[in-house]
Amino acid sequence: MGFFNKLKDGLKKTRENFFGKFKKILSGKTLNDEIREEIEELLILSDVGFEATQYILEKLEEIKGGDPFDNLKNIIEDLLSGDNALNIPETHPFVINMVGVNGSGKTTTAGKLAALFSSQNKNVVLAACDTFRAAAIDQLKIWAERTKSSFIAHSEGADAAAVAYDAVKHAQAKSKDIVILDTAGRLHTKSNLMEELKKINRVIKKVVPDAPHEVLLVIDAVTGQNGLQQAKVFKDAVNVTGIILTKLDGTAKGGIAIAIAKELGIPIKFIGVGEKIEDLRPFNAHEFVEALLEGDTVENTMG
């Protein structure tokens, strides 16, 4: 099954319950108060959020001519089309700090990222900076073995910043391409976690002054608006540069991607649509919108 078809299947419930209804409501129609109310309700229910919903409605009303459904697709695609590319430096190592609350799939996502980079013949270092959970260290070690990545860890309870420092030093000394730091995620509302993440960023700058090159926040799409609140907290604390949206293959409402893009202005850089190692892919706004609003009608035109 191609990735687009997996994405389409993952978004099936959202499409059937919410976004798939827009075509019937809008195609060939003229926007009026009744249609506007229907659209507003569907957008809010699909986790798009109030701010993004109002923006979409205003844009729809501004556009004169064209089919309203096609206009809606274009508006959403424009919203999601941020700078989705990774900020890869000219000199190695490329340092990625992975942040997010426990349960978002952060460690698994770090492993899948390592697999993706390894498939591109990059030498990866995985660093177990979540030193509060022995299980996280063990899990990341398995991913390192699976992806043939270097693995840097200290004992449980060790200083997370020291692990990060050692990982970046190792990558520099051994001419490794990429360092992925898997950090702790307990209690995102607590200031001690944010201070720990800030310390990690400060310490690795002593080795690579412009690191981390990416701070990627992993959000479980199923958490909806709670995920948006998490993103706001992390953005304020550690300058999040991109979002990885996981678990889009179940009960998640795909509208949260639109809410994140509009309310936070943080680009979505990767999405996960399943448990398999290849189910994490770079985010493509056009594919996402087509899978969300069209589904079957584009199955034969995309990979």
Rank of each mutant, 00 (worst) to 15 (best):
I266F: 05
I204D: 04
S149H: 00
K262D: 01
V238L: 13
S175F: 07
D177F: 00
I204N: 05
S191L: 12
H170E: 03
G250F: 09
L197W: 11
R186N: 13
L187Y: 02
L228H: 06
E145Y: 03
V207H: 10
K247D: 02
Q229E: 15
M194D: 03
L228R: 11
Q172H: 08
K262W: 01
A257G: 06
A162E: 04
A237F: 09
A221N: 03
A259K: 02
Q139E: 14
K169M: 13
A158G: 13
D236V: 07
D210M: 14
A259P: 07
D138E: 15
L216S: 04
A252I: 05
G265Y: 01
V238E: 01
T223W: 07
A252K: 01
L181W: 12
M194I: 02
A144W: 02
G265P: 06
I266C: 09
L187C: 00
E156Y: 11
R202P: 00
S149L: 10
E195H: 08
V233F: 11
A252H: 00
Q139R: 10
I204Q: 00
E196S: 00
V222T: 10
Q230I: 06
S155V: 10
L248Y: 08
Q229W: 02
K206E: 15
T223A: 04
E214I: 10
E156V: 14
A237T: 03
S150Q: 14
N192K: 02
